[in-house]
């Protein structure tokens, strides 16, 4: 959000915008424009410093929007159902999150955490990315607070666990398959699709390249 032409902070000249410190080992690199499709790695620890992609912002916004729509489907439709001995039982994603609280008041905090990890934080991340990168994708100027939205989205990354939830569901299905016949609701397929879109988005998302792009659009 700052002015690229500002040349001095106090007595010391501001370091060049081409200069990057490796976030893992603090080694300084003078990295100018990296051609799209290539990667600049830290010479000391091999961490990827920049991996810009052509049209990254547009692709990320498209994938995030798709994932957000699928999340709405995933929380509002039946997720799984089972049948055995003439009895049926079904569960939604919300039921799964709330199952601890329903079993015992002492475990209510775990329900809050599970709801945050599989629904609230993934949604917050997707919204933040769409808000911050949307104008970039359209070639417009950055929105107010775009930097904050993007920063919070990236900070939430380890805590958004939709992909771990779907693996947990797969394990649960193996456990329950000997007990009952399992049926898949629309929410199940929506959730699988959402995980694939999120994974695709995260593989092309290079945080530092996008900060440079946001900077230019400010």
């Amino acid at each position: 959000m700052n002015d690229r032409s500002s040349d001095a902070i106090g007595p010391q000249a501001a370091p060049s915008h081409d200069l990057i410190a490796c976030p893992q080992c603090d080694w300084l690199h003078d990295v100018g424009d990296v051609p799209t499709g290539t990667r600049a790695r830290c010479v000391r620890c091999r961490t990827v410093l920049l991996a810009p992609r052509r049209g990254a912002a547009a692709t990320i916004v498209a994938l995030a929007t798709g994932a957000l729509i699928l999340m709405v489907v995933a929380v509002s439709f039946p997720f799984l159902d089972i049948a055995a001995g003439g009895l049926r039982s079904s569960a939604s994603v919300m039921d799964a999150a709330l199952s601890f609280a329903l079993a015992s008041g002492r475990m209510a905090p775990l329900s809050v955490i599970v709801l945050a990890l599989i629904v609230v934080l993934p949604v917050a991340r997707l919204c933040g990315l769409i808000y911050a990168l949307g104008p970039l994708a359209l070639g417009r100027r950055a929105r107010p607070y775009a930097a904050q939205a993007f920063r919070i989205s990236m900070r939430l990354r380890p805590w958004a666990m939709a992909e771990i939830f779907i693996i947990g569901v797969a394990v649960a299905l193996v456990k329950v398959s000997s007990l009952a016949a399992v049926g898949f609701g629309p929410a199940f397929w929506a959730f699988v699709g959402l995980v694939i879109l999120v994974a695709a988005k995260d593989t092309i998302l290079c945080e530092r390249s996008l900060w440079r792009a946001l900077d230019r659009a400010a």
Binding site: L80, S89, A91, F100, I118, I167, V176
Partner: peptide
């Protein structure tokens, strides 16, 4: 973070398996 799988397995099983007196 992948260790969280186990908590999710319990969450979905506890939500799903309510088959009256059968299970």
């Amino acid at each position: 973070r992948w260790s969280m799988i186990d908590v999710f397995v319990v969450a979905i099983l506890a939500a799903l398996v309510h088959l009256g007196s059968v299970a």
